[in-house]
């Protein structure tokens, strides 16, 4: 049985359709990536799954329990790790975990054991008695994860858990996510770091403007991105005339301009580069940086929408 089933869910705010007919399902022990730029509908989708918002149409079930009509039972199976640490800064890590454990139905010895276990998982046992206000950003994020997993949920939502953390904490968080998968926890993982999603996720759904625009395993999506490499050339100001000339060059599949950057999809970047470089110079522009990226979920998104995942 799937841990999560989302069926044709729609949610609008006024005239803006934030989520438009989204369907997805996640099974036990699966890490499910949710990708999309800001405003794509990811946060609204996560809010709907976690019961913070009600869908206008469609159904969401966690472990077979409807999130709207059987909210308490559904939420007992759900853990949430919000993007910004949601903790009580004046309390210790242990006091925070005891509170979140209690709110999720744990008590007495089970609660004490769960607090100890969660602190061990995130590597904060030695600092358990310190006030959270004294914690570093990375430690707060780790404690934020501990608060989300303390009741051993079947489904865990992790919204950008590695934003702004030091490499050591980041590695610890990523390893924690992998360990949770091995224990059978289903995880919804959102991140702007595409390489993280490619490395961690079993399946990925790409959203844009409230809709699912692509879905599948990472390898399936990379195949959809095709064999195209992404040639990224930063110049001192793009020109419409040069864009037309570049588009006409042989070997270029598609080209997009984003601010002062040309993003070119091509099957052979090294072959295309000299001619592209000459064309840009001939237009009187100066090149300040050139990068070649292998096919990625970022290039798939670019191909599908003409925008990058970090577009506002």
């Amino acid at each position: 049985m799937n841990v999560l089933d989302v069926v044709n869910v729609k949610k609008a705010f006024g005239s803006r359709q934030a989520v438009d007919g989204v369907s997805l399902s996640i099974s036990e022990g699966e890490i499910f990536g949710l990708l999309g730029p800001n405003g794509a509908g990811k946060t609204t989708t996560l809010s709907l799954i976690s019961g913070l918002l009600r869908p206008h149409t469609g159904t969401i079930t966690i472990g077979g329990w409807n999130v709207v009509t059987q909210a308490t039972k559904a939420k007992a199976l759900l853990g949430v790790v919000p993007q910004e640490p949601a903790l009580y800064s004046q309390l210790s890590a242990e006091a925070n975990l005891r509170f979140w454990g209690t709110m999720n139905g744990l008590q007495t010895a089970d609660l004490t054991n769960a607090v100890k276990h969660a602190l061990t998982v995130v590597g904060l046992t030695d600092r358990a008695q310190e006030r959270v206000a004294k914690y570093s950003g990375g430690m707060k994020r780790r404690l934020n994860i501990a608060a989300g997993i303390i009741h051993n949920p079947k489904l865990l939502i992790m919204d950008e858990p590695t934003v702004g953390v030091d490499p050591q904490s980041r590695n610890h968080i990523l390893q924690t996510v992998k360990n949770l998968r091995e224990q059978g926890t289903a995880i919804i993982y959102t991140s702007h770091y595409v390489e993280e999603v490619e490395d961690l996720c079993d399946r990925v759904t790409v959203m844009d403007q409230g809709k699912v625009i692509s879905a599948g395993t990472v390898s399936q999506l990379l195949n959809k991105a095709g064999q195209y490499q992404e040639l990224v050339i930063t110049v001192n100001g793009t020109k419409a005339t040069s864009l037309m000339q570049l588009t006409a060059l042989p070997g270029i599949k598609e080209i997009f301009t984003i601010n002062n950057v040309y993003k070119i999809l091509t099957s052979n970047a090294e072959q295309v580069l000299p001619l592209t470089y000459e064309t840009i110079l001939a237009e009187g522009m100066q090149v300040s940086a050139i990068h070649i990226h292998k096919p990625s979920l970022e290039s798939l998104f670019l191909k599908l929408t003409g925008r990058t995942l970090r577009d506002q």
Partner: peptide, 12 residues
């Protein structure tokens, strides 16, 4: 702080 939303997502 986000604690309100987190409480609302708990089994309470």
């Amino acid at each position: 702080n986000g604690t309100w939303q987190r409480i609302l997502t708990s089994a309470t």
